[in-house]
Computed example of a mutant assay.
Amino acid sequence: MIKTMPIAALILFVSLSGCTNDRSLAPPADSEQMTITVKVPKELETETLEVMYRSAVCKYITHGASGQRVELEGYHGINVQLQRQGQSDLYQARLPMDGGGACQWHLSNVRFGVAYRNPARFGENVTYGAGGGVVVMFDHNRPSLSSGLPIKVDGDLTIRKDYYPWLSEAFIEGYRKQISLAGEGNIYLMYQALKARQVYFEPVLHSDFLVKSEGTKVHKIGSFIKFSYPDGSTVADGHYQPDFRKLQAIRKAAESKK
């Protein structure tokens, strides 16, 4: 069960399949805190902070391919809205590392990010696509919907990454026009920070370097997405997302001429 709530209202009741015992979060007053801070560019906004607690006491029961019983750590997910700090561009949430309760919950991972505040500025019926996300693991449990290996860091985590606006058009299975954030890696950057107590994310948006893409209109061999880069070049080489290194090179070349 996933609920949206302010951080002050963490105590709730959750029951997993077949369980009747109290699985409430009950963070002790002296719990260590995890602080998540995002510095948000003016064109963007924070997405909901998805928080996962896990428990070795209250198990999640599933079954393997042969029908055998499999016990995994129990899970308890909540959504938290990051709060603006005064009139600054910083948004923050503080999470108890120790979720407490009978299940002895512990903070396992968080998922958060930024998105365009007003996609319509890029045209009529433009919606937000993807990109600008971060996943941070605080234990050895793999988050859901994750892929690849996490970047492992010691101590607190500071993330400062470049992003570019990516306006894409798709035609197959219905027309879609979306504005996304093209960055290093896929939709989410994934980290493992076992000793962190501070996570700071600063996305650097290069608004003047828009990349566009036009999807194919028919399924056929040799028909690829066409990317139009801010230097006027076009590429259709089979990739499904912009070439981040090319965008970086274009920007740095333009900046060096100023």
Rank of each mutant, 00 (worst) to 15 (best):
T4L: 09
T4R: 06
I7H: 05
L12N: 14
L16G: 15
N21P: 10
N21S: 05
A29S: 12
A29Q: 12
S31E: 02
T35L: 09
K42I: 15
E47M: 15
R54E: 12
S55P: 09
I61L: 07
E73I: 09
G74L: 09
I78R: 06
I78N: 10
V80M: 01
Q83E: 01
Q83N: 05
Q83W: 05
Q87K: 12
S88T: 03
D89G: 11
L90F: 06
L90H: 06
G99D: 00
Q104M: 08
Q104R: 03
W105Q: 08
W105N: 05
W105R: 11
H106T: 06
L107W: 01
L107K: 10
A115W: 01
Y116W: 06
A120L: 05
A120Q: 08
F122H: 07
G123D: 01
Y128V: 07
G129H: 02
A130V: 14
G131L: 02
H140V: 12
H140A: 15
S144I: 11
L145E: 14
L145M: 14
S147H: 11
S147W: 11
G148S: 02
L149A: 14
P150C: 05
D156R: 01
I159Y: 05
D162E: 11
S168N: 13
E169W: 13
F171T: 05
E173K: 15
Y175V: 13
Y175Q: 13
K177G: 02
S180M: 03
L181T: 03
G183F: 01
N186V: 08
M190P: 10
Y191T: 03
L194G: 08
K195E: 10
K195P: 08
Q198N: 08
F201A: 05
F201D: 01
F201W: 07
E202W: 00
L205E: 07
L205Q: 01
S207P: 09
S207T: 13
D208E: 02
F209R: 07
V211D: 03
K212P: 09
G215F: 04
K217W: 04
K217I: 02
G222E: 11
F224H: 01
I225L: 13
K226R: 00
S228R: 15
P230V: 06
D231Y: 02
G232P: 06
D237R: 09
H239A: 13
Q241T: 02
P242G: 04
D243H: 10
K246M: 04
K246F: 04
Q248E: 11
A249D: 11
A249L: 05
R251K: 04
K252C: 13
S256R: 03
K258L: 15
